[in-house]
Amino acid sequence: MKQLAQRLLGPVTLVSMALTVWLGLVVTPPDKVQGDLARLVYVHPAVAWVALYLSFGTATIASVLYLWPRTRSVVADRVAHSAMEVSLVFIALTLITGSIWGRPTWGVWWAWDARLTSTAILGLLAVGYLALRRANDDPTLRAKRSAVFAVLSAINVPIIHFSVLWWKTLHQGATVFTANRSLLIHGIMAWTLLLSFVAFSLAYAWLVRARYRLEVARERLDNEAITEAIAARVLEGRS
């Protein structure tokens, strides 16, 4: 069952992505005010959801599991690393799609808006996480330090979430729901938006799984190289 689900993940992701593109570009109508520009709503919020909450959340939970002695395992470290790497890609996509929307709407590619700036800072923290991993060769040392750093970096996520309320800068507040939880978007547009969240979440899961497998393969390769080097030294000693 688990293997079937893993095999189906790729095709289901592709189908849901294709459906999102078709619904977003062909079926849904343009917005009354923003015209075709509003179609970015089927990409940007979903990408941001994956970047800020899904992937950073996964990396943080996996890091906490690694730091907790009872749940410490190499699996948690690999998941945290994979999730953080994918998170960086999605943070970059969030900023790029936001800029594409910002240029015609705000008149600039970049504004010193609280949410934009705090998201960019989160991206830099993800870069820092990856730099920290590369700076430590010892696997245990690397895992512990990067786990602590991931937990520290997670402080930024609620700041990003509430930034539109705290600072009231350019970025709009809640787009999908009002304060009393009623929908602001309806009909086919709402369904396409929902599908985009599913599609990008599936894409995220697929990427993390691929990155995880790559990490396992890399570790195996490293171990084989060490074993071969030891065998060569043993042979040298005998001859």
Partner: peptide, 8 residues
């Protein structure tokens, strides 16, 4: 690289 984003 690690500290400056957090210090912001």
């Amino acid at each position: 690289v690690l500290a400056l984003p957090a210090f912001a």
